[in-house]
Amino acid sequence: MGHHQGAPMPAGIRHGFRARAHPARSVPCPHEPCHARAHQACIVRVNGRTLAKLHPSRIAAWAASIACCPECQVTPGTPCHVNGQQMAGVHPRRIQEAQVTLA
């Protein structure tokens, strides 16, 4: 007998299960070499171990995608900058702003 998978889980219920996870899991991880897909935990590629916490660059990518930065005044989707130079990450206040946005 083949394995039968029931009906797909409704999005509202699926979101409820994911609600316990950090909201940054909703974006893919840009950390080299992790590159976990959206809604998957970050991993250590060399041994496949799942990490308890997300890579900081994933949290930064999530914050940049949903929140304006109170530090450099950029809109969601625009990278943070310092003196006109794009930052590798985001200002810490932008991460705080993203967390407030979800509350």
Rank of each mutant, 00 (worst) to 15 (best):
Q86I: 14
C29S: 08
G84A: 02
V46H: 12
Q73E: 11
R94Q: 07
E32Y: 07
I59Y: 02
H4A: 14
E97T: 11
A36P: 04
P79I: 04
Q85D: 09
Q40N: 12
L51R: 14
A60F: 01
V27S: 02
R14E: 10
C80M: 03
P23A: 11
G6S: 14
A19H: 12
C80R: 02
N83L: 11
A21N: 09
H15C: 04
G48W: 01
H81L: 01
V46F: 05
M9N: 13
T78N: 00
H3Y: 13
A67I: 01
V100S: 09
H55V: 04
A103V: 04
C34V: 07
P28K: 00
N47P: 00
N47H: 02
G77W: 06
F17Y: 13
A63Q: 06
S65H: 02
A21R: 13
Q86G: 01
H15W: 07
P70V: 10
A63K: 01
A11E: 15
A38R: 00
G16H: 12
V27E: 05
H39P: 00
H22P: 04
Q96K: 08
P10L: 03
R37H: 08
R58W: 06
I43T: 13
G89H: 08
T50F: 00
A52M: 08
H4V: 04
A60H: 06
H3A: 14
A52K: 11
A19L: 09
H81E: 13
H55N: 00
A21H: 11
P76L: 07
V44P: 00
R14W: 15
G89C: 05
A64D: 10
I66R: 04
Q85E: 09
A41P: 01
L51S: 03
H15A: 10
H22S: 12
H31E: 12
H31L: 02
I59N: 06
P79E: 05
P28R: 05
N83S: 14
P10S: 13
G2W: 07
R14V: 02
P30E: 03
M1N: 05
H39F: 10
H22F: 03
Q73R: 11
L54W: 00
A64V: 13
R18Q: 12
I43V: 14
G77K: 04
I95M: 13
A88H: 12
A24K: 01
A63C: 06
Q96D: 13
G2M: 11
R20Q: 09
F17P: 06
E32V: 15
G77M: 04
G89D: 05
P30A: 05
A41C: 03
Q73H: 12
R18A: 09
A24E: 08
L51E: 03
T78K: 05
A64G: 00
V27F: 02
T50N: 01
L54Q: 06
Q86S: 09
H3N: 09
R20K: 12
A21Q: 14
T50K: 07
R45D: 02
P79L: 03
T75H: 06
G12K: 14
H91S: 11
Q40G: 03
R37I: 04
R45S: 03
P23E: 07
S57R: 07
G6L: 11
A38L: 02
I66T: 02
R49V: 05
F17S: 04
A41L: 03
R25H: 12
A7L: 12
A38I: 00
M87W: 00
H81A: 15
H91R: 10
H91E: 04
H39V: 03
R49Q: 08
V46L: 08
G6D: 07
H91F: 13
L54E: 07
P30F: 09
